[in-house]
């Protein structure tokens, strides 16, 4: 069993925390894992992505081959588009619906939505809004992870929750609870779809 996931967004949006949580869960469930990240120049407001590979058998490449990714989790709608050639036909995209506009020309959001839905199953979540509504404004990324959780498949939802508790434990009980609440709110977003 294996699952290849692409996490995408803009530098500073917190995709690496999502990767850390999934990574913790994977290790503690005896899965093989490879997770390639982008550090350096792009972190200054450029496009960033992380290739996350989970498998019950050893993994060779740190990068996901085209057509093998089953799930894109994106903190930004246009950034999800960039990785379509890696997504299996009919694969899942869980994306924040709120654009992050730091470039002079940004495509129409409807055009982005249409392009995303062409070959893939897409769940749009206004994760910034949901995070705020749940009094966890800094946990937009955990809302998104919650919305994507059931499509990760290779990990039980409870195991991901356990990972959130452990990853954020050193930041104190309040931060843990904020993130769990955000995750559960996200979970509801995809189940109600």
């Amino acid at each position: 069993m294996k699952k290849d996931i692409i996490l995408s967004g803009v530098g500073g949006q917190g995709i690496l925390s999502i990767a850390t949580v999934i990574g913790w869960a994977a290790i503690n469930n005896s899965l093989y894992i490879k997770q390639a990240e982008v550090h350096g120049m792009s972190q200054r407001g450029g496009d960033v992505q992380s290739n996350l590979r989970l498998s019950s058998t050893p993994i060779f490449s740190d990068l996901i081959p085209e057509g093998e990714c089953g799930l894109i989790i994106s903190m930004e709608p246009m950034e999800a588009l960039r990785y379509l050639p890696y997504l299996q036909k009919g694969g899942w995209i869980v994306t924040n619906s709120a654009p992050f506009i730091n470039i002079p020309v940004y495509p129409e959001i409807e055009e982005i939505k249409k392009a995303l839905q062409k070959d893939a199953n897409v769940i749009f979540v206004d994760s910034d809004k949901v995070a705020k509504e749940n009094m966890a404004p800094l946990s937009s990324n955990m809302v998104l992870l919650g919305a994507a959780a059931k499509y990760i498949e290779i990990l039980d939802i409870e195991k991901i929750k356990e990972a959130i508790r452990n990853v954020f434990a050193r930041k104190g009980e309040k931060i843990v609870e904020d993130n769990i609440r955000a995750f559960e709110a996200g979970l509801k977003c995809s189940i109600s779809k």
Binding site: S42, G67, M78, K89, E111, I112, D119
Partner: peptide
Amino acid sequence: KMKEACAKSDVALPRPPALC
């Protein structure tokens, strides 16, 4: 043979790094 994948979209525009 390459695996079947979603088609590339030209809607996405480059997002170069920038000063904070």
